[in-house]
């Protein structure tokens, strides 16, 4: 009962403060108090916990900012209402990962009109966001292609697995892998020509035989991998573009008794994949180091709020880069990830 009363009291205070803030919002940013900023993800995922770790890291290292982190549980509508609430509270800066960049542009502009707004992970290029912090997924994809080349230097058949190709980052990654394996010239982000889905790409040494989507359904992810093993007896390498894909591929390979025979290269830093790299069952992975998203977002927002725009490049894109992880640097990387995961899992 007391707990409930406290919540009601707290809510009332927040509401009152929020009303006060919107009326004299200039005050909050000008004074020597901490900047209040918000980090809004596009959903709930372990990936975002790692990003949150970066936020917390920056918050304590840089000082002068107070961060709140929001994970919209179910899609667009939730994200919108979270942003609206933040505006009502008079938040000083927002870093957001828009779920539907084109559809949200108008709303994002409203947000940008009332507070300092940047995008991270996914961009909304047509909005008035101050800067976009993300990865060049095409470059990362090419790096992944490079990994595949190292894994199967003699060439062979490669199959790609991904959750959904509707997402821009997935398409860019896939194109990067294909272009690299076929030794095509590098394309510029934003002007990439995407190849169609149902097509076999035959290069000199490497053939990309298939791309399969699973719509984030785990049993589909696994059975897609199984079916590829059945369909392509000479499959040399499986490439998983989303975090959960490589572990599913590894399971299927193991059950088919082809561990080591079919190589696995992946994206992101799923523990099962890292373990397989350590054990030699997978070749390597490309990590976006999610914590860097969080860290950079806070750093850039703080600078902007301190009237320092030097961090914003002319093309409004800050590439946090990626890290190639193989057996060589697996221990070092995994330790870093563990630390970050522990930090991110801490709830306020």
């Amino acid at each position: 009962m007391i707990k409930k009363l406290t919540i009601i009291a707290a809510a009332t205070v927040v509401f009152a403060v929020g009303c006060g803030k919107t009326s004299d919002g200039d005050d909050a940013t000008g004074g020597g108090t901490k900047h209040k900023i918000a980090y809004v993800t596009n959903g709930i995922d372990p990936f975002w916990d790692l990003c949150a770790a970066g936020v917390r890291q920056a918050e304590s290292e840089l000082g002068g900012v107070e961060c709140e982190i929001h994970f919209p549980p179910k899609g667009l509508a939730d994200q919108k209402s979270i942003l609206e609430t933040l505006l009502a509270k008079g938040i000083a800066g927002i870093a957001v990962s828009p779920i539907d960049a084109d559809g949200q542009t108008q709303f994002l502009n409203e947000v940008a009109g009332q507070t300092k707004m940047i995008t991270h992970d996914a961009d909304a290029p047509n909005s008035n966001r101050l800067v976009y912090i993300g990865t060049d997924n095409y470059k990362a994809g090419r790096a992944l292609g490079q990994l595949v080349k190292e894994a199967i230097p003699d060439g062979g058949e490669v199959a790609i697995f991904v959750g959904r190709l509707e997402q821009l980052n997935a398409r860019q990654r896939r194109q990067g892998v294909i272009d690299e394996l076929l030794d095509r010239p590098s394309q510029v982000l934003g002007k990439i020509e995407f190849d169609e889905v149902a097509k076999v790409f035959k290069g000199e040494k490497y053939t990309v035989v298939d791309t399969r989507t699973d719509n984030f359904v785990m049993d589909a992810a696994k059975s897609n991998a199984e079916d590829a093993i059945t369909k392509y007896p000479n499959l040399a390498c499986m490439v998983g573009l989303f975090a959960y894909n490589p572990p599913r591929c590894l399971q299927a390979i193991k059950e088919a008794g082809k561990l080591g025979q079919i190589k696995v290269c992946g994206f992101d830093e799923d523990d099962a994949l890292l373990q397989a790299i350590k054990d030699g069952n997978a070749y390597g992975t490309i990590s976006q180091q999610p914590w860097k998203y969080g860290y950079q977002s806070v750093r850039v927002l703080k600078a902007i709020l301190d009237d320092d725009n030097s961090l914003i490049p002319a093309n409004k894109f800050i590439d946090v880069g990626y890290k190639t992880v193989t057996a060589k640097n697996i221990d070092e990387f995994w330790n870093e990830k563990r630390e970050m995961a522990a930090l991110g899992a801490k709830k306020d």
Binding site: L165, V197, A198, T211, R212, T213, D227, A228, T230, K231
Partner: peptide, 8 residues
């Protein structure tokens, strides 16, 4: 998957 129809 095996016949090779587009995943979509």
């Amino acid at each position: 998957n095996l016949v090779g129809v587009s995943t979509h």
